[in-house]
């Protein structure tokens, strides 16, 4: 495999658990996926399926008492002499210098809630400049210039004035732009966007997505886009990972996922997208039932209680494994077990 086609980030069999007195929440249970340079990988699923915990696991900022119990997270970094090397992020100490250089330097994160994601006591400039100076040797003055420049790049009018304002003085869209500017301040290779547009109105949402796409073209950054919105995925992603209860149930290129979904969960998700072509006054399709409580995960395939294609005696007994269906798609479902190899 050539350098260009080797994944920049490989998550292998990731398990992140929260061990509490009441029981163990298996937030992520055996997630695997690859991210390639310049690619946008969408991770979709309902609330509580482990998308955000996966993102935080990659950055090693899972909250207590969450812990990575198993699995590897391989990051490909370029060494000083141009050669590339792979680091397993799970082996690094979360607060070590090496991990902190990667956090914000190689991998950056943007959040859903741009209001509470900024400190109300510091100007946005202060917070961006801090990020810049953490990873680059710049004087305060140079860092400030760079911060203003970044704000201009993400389309903020009058950046030399905005930089001295506080997050609560900015509109939601501007705040998210500042957040993106801050994330991009150290030219990361990977940008993880955790529901970047969920808190915004639709128009602003489209603008932010455009901005992300434009920045990706300019800087060649790889994006992991976490969302529950299939519309956003269709617009942005190259490849899609569908998660359910901490597990990957289907993976494939965006076209296949949308036009030829295999897993019953993926199909249900797609059916629940409102369509402009649908007959008026028809009910929107929903997925029956709700996500089981994390303490009592169903036996067998965790989706079987809600699955339209439930096969008694099979799905509620054994756990399906991720298997390759064809060159592009991977699925974990017993429906495809008897395929000729």
């Amino acid at each position: 495999m050539s350098q260009q086609n080797a994944p920049i980030l490989s998550v292998e069999n990731l398990h992140t658990y929260f061990r509490q007195d009441e029981g163990v929440v298996r937030a992520v249970e055996g997630a695997s996926f690859d991210l390639y340079p310049g690619q946008t990988l969408g991770i979709v699923g309902e609330s509580g399926c482990g998308k955000s915990v996966t993102a935080r696991s990659i950055l090693r900022i899972v909250e207590e008492p969450g812990k990575i119990e198993q699995g590897n997270i391989w990051l490909r970094t370029s060494g000083s002499n141009g050669s590339s090397q792979r680091v397993d992020l799970t082996t690094l100490d979360a607060d070590s210098q090496a991990m902190r250089d990667i956090r914000g330097g190689e991998i950056a994160l943007i959040f859903q809630e741009p209001m509470t994601s900024f400190s109300a006591f510091h100007t946005v400039g202060n917070q961006i400049i801090e990020a810049i100076r953490l990873h680059q040797k710049l004087s305060p003055k140079e860092a400030r210039e760079k911060a203003i420049d970044l704000l201009r790049q993400v389309g903020i009018p009058k950046p030399e004035r905005r930089i001295d304002e506080y997050a609560f003085q900015l509109s939601g869209g501007l705040r998210q732009r500042v957040m993106i500017a801050m994330a991009l301040s150290s030219d990361p290779k990977i940008l993880i966007a955790d529901e970047p547009t969920t808190a915004l109105d639709v128009t602003t949402q489209a603008q932010i997505l455009d901005l992300l796409r434009q920045l990706q073209e300019e800087k060649g950054v790889s994006i992991i886009l976490i969302t529950h919105d299939m519309g956003v995925i269709a617009e942005m992603a190259d490849a899609v990972v569908v998660m359910y209860l901490g597990q990957v149930v289907e993976e494939g290129p965006v076209d296949d996922i949308f036009h030829n979904p295999k897993h019953p969960y993926t199909r249900s998700l797609l059916k629940s997208i409102p369509s402009i072509l649908a007959k008026p006054r028809t009910k929107l399709a929903t997925i029956t039932g709700s996500i089981p409580h994390p303490y009592n995960r169903p036996a067998g395939c965790s989706f079987h209680p809600r699955c339209p294609d439930f096969m008694p005696g099979r799905c509620d007994v054994a756990e399906p494994k991720l298997q390759k269906l064809n060159e592009r798609q991977v699925v974990s479902c017993f429906l495809y077990d008897n395929l000729p190899e």
Partner: peptide, 16 residues
Amino acid sequence: LRKPYVVTAQAKGLSR
């Protein structure tokens, strides 16, 4: 400590 801005600051690469 549970507010999102703490995670933002951590994600920048600041020490805990």
